[in-house]
């Protein structure tokens, strides 16, 4: 089983770190593909768009103890787009919260990897998601709790761009600014596709950075697949401690598997056998 030694990663210089992280991402993409293919259900597109961000976050920023998942002073990570669970399960297995064989339980009765991430089932999962638009409010509660505890722990929330069509997300954006929670950090996986089609055909979001900054947040945009930009962006997020901040990551839905890229069909569909085999080859797996 492959479990990373995070302390070794932290000793690397940036260029070597980027190479390592990209390799971890590749392995996670293989996991995502295998989970969705095996279950013949699930959400590959959003898992592939978010995975570079998750890998960098877990490997370089988050404070946690794999042998004590409930450690009260851990940083929180809330995957609000909880359907993109294969991505999270994959990185949780890489850092050691769950075992590689647990990934096989994805969507299976009795398995710890539920279809949508669930804090009651999976060690390392901080929020039971699956219904969009809920994670930021929950994260605000976690951030306020950290403040009440006088703790330096941070609360990271990942949202999808389609998800911010939910009005209650904007209640949470407004409330987070009102309460000035500098320890609340959002990563927006802006992959431009939602369930039915491209975001722009369903409900246009227009200028997301401008909207968010008009609510008084700190805002930065990056390429969500460029590991150098991701590392810089996550450092920016971590060091913004006075106001809530959002890192808007422009990503490609289905990134890394050509026929899934920018293809709304693979928001929530599994590949067939032929597609699976060609995807494995693309990801460098020797059949």
């Amino acid at each position: 089983m492959f479990v990373m030694d995070l302390s070794q990663l932290k000793k690397l210089d940036v260029s070597d770190l980027v190479v390592e992280l990209e390799e971890i991402s590749r392995k996670c993409r293989i996991d995502i593909l295998k989970m969705v293919y095996r279950a013949q259900a699930g959400h590959p597109g959003g898992s592939l768009s978010e995975i570079d961000l998750l890998v960098a976050l877990y490997c370089t920023q988050l404070r946690f103890r794999v042998d004590d998942p409930e450690w009260s002073d851990r940083d929180r990570f809330i995957l609000s787009k909880g359907h993109a669970s294969p991505g999270l399960y994959s990185i949780l297995s890489k850092v050691g919260f769950i075992k590689e064989k647990d990934l096989l339980s994805y969507r299976e009765l009795g398995g710890i990897c539920q279809g949508h991430v669930d804090m009651k089932f999976t060690p390392g999962v901080d929020f039971s998601a699956g219904s969009l638009g809920m994670g930021l409010s929950f994260g605000l509660g976690c951030a306020l709790a950290a403040r009440l505890d006088n703790s330096t722990r941070n609360c990271y929330v990942m949202l999808g761009d389609g998800e911010i069509q939910e009005g209650s997300v904007w209640e949470a954006i407004m409330a987070s600014r009102h309460h000035e929670v500098g320890n609340l950090k959002v990563i927006l996986d802006c992959n431009r596709i939602q369930n039915d089609d491209f975001v722009n055909t369903q409900m246009r979001l227009f200028d997301i950075p401008k909207k968010w900054s008009s609510f008084g947040w700190e805002v930065k945009e990056i390429d969500g697949h460029n590991m150098n930009e991701i590392l810089d962006g996550l450092n920016w997020l971590k060091n913004n401690n006075n106001l809530p901040s959002v890192l808007i990551a422009n990503t490609v839905k289905g990134k890394g598997i050509s026929f899934m890229e920018n293809n709304p069909k693979f928001h929530g569909a599994a590949p067939n056998e032929e597609q699976y085999k060609s995807a494995l080859i693309e990801l460098g797996v020797d059949n």
């Binding site: 009260s72 804090m119 901080d126 929020f127 809920m134 409010s137 929950f138 994260g139 605000l140 509660g141 976690c142 951030a143 306020l144 709790a145 950290a146 009440l148 505890d149 209650s168 209640e171 949470a172 407004m174 409330a175 009102h178 309460h179």
Partner: peptide, 27 residues
Amino acid sequence: NRTISCGIGEQNMMLVAAGLASSGYRP
């Protein structure tokens, strides 16, 4: 200091409470 105003926003309020509860508070 232990009262959190959520404005006229009940949906947000319920989940802020959930986040607090998950962190050991009794909202």
